[in-house]
Design a protein around this nucleic acid. Structure first.
Lengths: 223, 223, 223, 223
DNA sequence: AATGAATGAGGATTCATTCAT
DNA sequence: TATGAATGAATCCTCATTCAT
């Protein structure tokens, strides 16, 4: 008579967490297509069927895994960012933080870029919301900088956001393909220098520039 | 009794081209994973097996298709770019060209971003070489601009390249997911403005000049 | 509207056995290359995919099937062989047993000779181990016969093994190709007669022979 | 305008020979199933279609190749065998010759054992006829030996044939799987000793005669 | 006689997901 | 709630052979 091994009954939370941990490891190692549910189950110490009690399907599991990762990533940032003064410093912190995340988890980062973000329903996911909050910090910093007179008033904050995150991604693709490495500090400096050059109020000319900007704004409003 | 139709013997060039055209359509419609070789074959008017005379496998077909597309994309640019004077105008042309390509072929663009570029062997492909040449034009323009005194000497040309292409990608991801649209002209202007702000030799003249140019453009638009 | 029939959940043992039975029939009928997994699945009353839960692949299935067959073949022999006295009788039993097996399962026999034994990894398989034990019985009998003074002492037991099994195979190839038949009893007698002629102690001349053998050994030692 | 390369028009004999040479190499390297007609064509310097002008199909090509090999193998033997006196010496020559062939062309040998001989139509092939003649020499030698009083009269010549070739095959299977090696001389001696033991006319004369013959051979070797 | 493009059937294997126990 | 056997569709790729040029 075969011995029935009944898995110890864990709390759903613990079970979910175990699966997420296993999923994270496997997805990172293999990418989406080459990840097999059976391997996740094995590593999590459950059977395949059990995964489907907690996650709708493979895609859902990947999303929840990425969300959990991302959430942990963001958690500590708020406090830190609050403690930093000056738009430039704050931008550098955000850039540095993002570069660090990519550097530490290149495979998960690539997974997000390659399989999560292009998903047709990405916009409906929690990951999208999380990421939106994540990148919105740039927008907030820029707007605060404008208000504080540190940054030119005619700057599009959302464009700055796209410039920052887009540049970083483009710059790090080779690394994400496991080709070479990059220097977080150096790249942070380069990027913030470059971005700031396009943002900073150019000194005494600021007045003339501001006046012209106002004229332009009025004309735009008439269109 | 089915009629045995033996396909007319075409030149390899013609046959290859037919397959590439079919492949382009199907890959664009379905993406990589959901593309079935049988459908490509059918649309190309050949049997599945025939595709494998010309292309090693599905992945190879996708790469060659993308290369053909990209090559055609670039071909006309050289002459045009040569006819444009001034670093700013040239950058705008490159940005505008890239935005246009994405706008016209969003599905192929996404395919490249999602499946070609992340490929571990991407660096060994011809597509990589083509893309390198494509993006290198920014580097050249920046260097020439520096030499001509239009652009600050302490600018990293390769960073400018990554800023431009990265920003565009980040900005257009929603569109690539078929969410909304973007205005090529407006985005070109925004981007070139922003980038140029970080490149231009500082000075009151430059800023005022740019602002006046914009005002003039607006007024012209009203007429 | 087709009825969705979900196969009853059987014990792995039963399911494995079912598949092995089906595989044995199909492999015997069609040979290796012409055997289609789909047919095995159908006869076993499962879906193709289910086979792969129990067997790594087609080759593995063939090996396990052959092993199961061979194991059953051997099982009853030990007791019988133990009950037979005299080297000659024991050799006849082994020969007779082998001829019977070939006669009863010519197709499986050919499968083993043609596809299992030539396999580069044959030596690592369980079938090899089983077969080794199977043929080793000749070696044991010969050695026991030598010890008992029934068989000449200068006989290579492993050579006798190869002579017996090799002769049988060579003799039965036509039958395995479905050409004609052979008489188990007659062939057993012929073979055992012939083999025994080469093994038996030739009586009184043994002394002279032994003396000459010693001379030769001495001379050989000098070379 | 593409250059039309028309293969130099060779004589059919030369063309056939080229293909056979190429086929021999490829079949030996890859075995039957893994041999691709395209590779044979390439090595022979022809296109695939041309092979089918000279050979009905892949199987036919393999058979003709094996026949050509075998024919060349046998050619020189007749004269040599005719020059050897004594049944024992003649048997040793045949055994030695067969072992040498296997040793020199293990892959072709395995091909014959694995794919040619088990063929249902083997009996209708020329290879069968050639092989029959090849092995029939043992029968002839045995019969002549009986007539000359060297060999017992109650021996089945065809059984001796099967014993010899079967033993050799069984003994060399490991080598054919590329496991280890064997010593042609030693194995020849062992086999002929063993076989002869079962054939020789019993009696003190025979044993003494044989022993003396061996002693003489050894002594001759020292000179 | 040579070419080599085209054929086209063939078939093993994978794996996310379901559901009876 | 957990199990894990069963599903079964899905598909890429191979390659001997043919035949129009």
């Amino acid at each position: 008579m075969p011995v029935k091994r009944r898995a110890s009954r864990l709390s759903p939370e613990k079970r979910t967490a175990d699966i997420l941990v296993a999923a994270r490891a496997v997805f990172a190692e293999r990418g989406y297509s080459d990840t097999v549910m059976a391997e996740i189950a094995e590593r999590a110490g459950v059977v395949e069927g059990s995964i489907y009690r907690y996650f709708r399907n493979k895609r859902d599991l990947m999303f929840q895994m990425a969300e959990a990762w991302f959430e942990a990533l963001i958690k500590t940032d708020e406090a830190t960012l609050g403690a930093i003064g000056g738009a430039r410093n704050r931008l550098r912190f955000i850039i540095h933080r993002h570069l660090t995340a990519i550097h530490e988890e290149p495979d998960l980062s690539r997974l997000v870029f390659q399989h999560l973000r292009p998903d047709p329903d990405y916009r409906e996911t929690r990951l999208f919301a999380l990421n939106r909050a994540y990148t919105a910090r740039v927008v907030e910093v820029v707007k605060a900088g404008v208000a504080a007179g540190e940054i030119r008033g005619d700057v599009s904050a959302s464009l700055v956001r796209d410039v920052i995150f887009g540049s970083i991604e483009h710059r790090t693709w080779a690394f994400l393909r496991h080709e070479g490495d990059f220097d977080i500090e150096r790249l942070s400096d380069q990027l913030v220098d470059h971005v700031w050059a396009g943002l900073a109020v150019p000194g005494v000319q600021a007045d003339i520039g501001a006046a012209l900007a106002r004229i332009e704004a009025r004309m735009a409003a008439r269109d």
